[in-house]
């Protein structure tokens, strides 16, 4: 049911190690990995949800042994082949250097500032009316799973499945990752911030007043 990226609440990971604000990149290849990923994304062959899912469905062993930017590189290489941009032979160094049909879409240096400034807003018009208003009691679905594609991408973490919370705010309709990651369209629907008492999520909460909020789509929620 779950995948290794869904680690909220997990035990055994040890201390968090603080670090100074610089350097931004600890290795040159970290910076290159970030830049290659953004530039390849600009080819327009996948969306943000697809690329997140590509990292999530690395094998659990790869997910655990790869460092952060190694996951990015592995997810990118897998996507490039799956989408037909590159072949396995290309990755192995045996491909040709003929001009690629997508080369005209390559991100040029002069366009970088504009592309980064534009970003990719996820709010959309939607015909689906909001079911909830702030203050409504809701319960999340259980199990936390994509209802459209078995084993597919979803943004409801396992630790919050079946939990009772209260709507804190409504954000209008946003692209539904569960559909968009799998070529099923953007399927926008209302998005909410939902607040949960820590005692609803954890067997031994640290403090009776503590809370966790999550941003959840309407189809993840039912009235409670």
């Amino acid at each position: 049911m779950t995948r290794p990226h869904d680690m909220g609440g997990r035990f055994g990971d040890g201390a968090v190690i603080p670090e100074p604000e610089t350097p931004v990149f600890h290795e040159d290849w970290h910076a290159r990995a970030l830049a290659v990923t953004l530039a390849a994304g600009a080819l327009g062959q996948w969306n943000l949800d697809t690329s997140r899912h590509a990292r999530e469905r690395l094998s659990p062993r790869d997910y655990a042994r790869f460092s952060y930017y190694e996951k990015w590189m592995a997810g990118l290489a897998d996507l490039l082949v799956e989408k037909g941009v590159l072949s396995r032979e290309d990755l192995a160094g045996g491909g040709d250097d003929a001009p690629h049909p997508l080369a005209a879409r390559a991100l040029k240096a002069h366009a970088v500032a504009g592309v980064l400034a534009k970003g990719g807003p996820s709010d959309r018009p939607s015909a689906i009316p909001p079911r909830f208003v702030p203050g409504c009691a809701v319960r999340t679905l259980r199990p936390a799973a994509n209802r459209l594609v078995d084993g597919g991408h979803t943004r409801l973490p396992a630790y919050a499945a079946g939990a009772r919370g209260v709507i804190l705010s409504c954000h209008g309709a946003h692209v539904l990752p569960d559909a968009n990651a799998h070529g099923l369209g953007e399927a926008p629907e209302p998005l909410y911030t939902v607040v949960f008492p820590a005692s609803e999520l954890w067997a031994a909460p640290e403090h009776p007043g503590d809370e966790v909020t999550l941003d959840l789509w309407q189809s993840y929620l039912e009235p409670a």
Partner: peptide, 14 residues
Amino acid sequence: RKGLIDPAALDAII
């Protein structure tokens, strides 16, 4: 090599 990314664009992103 395939013309899919421009190293100068990578430098600009970084």
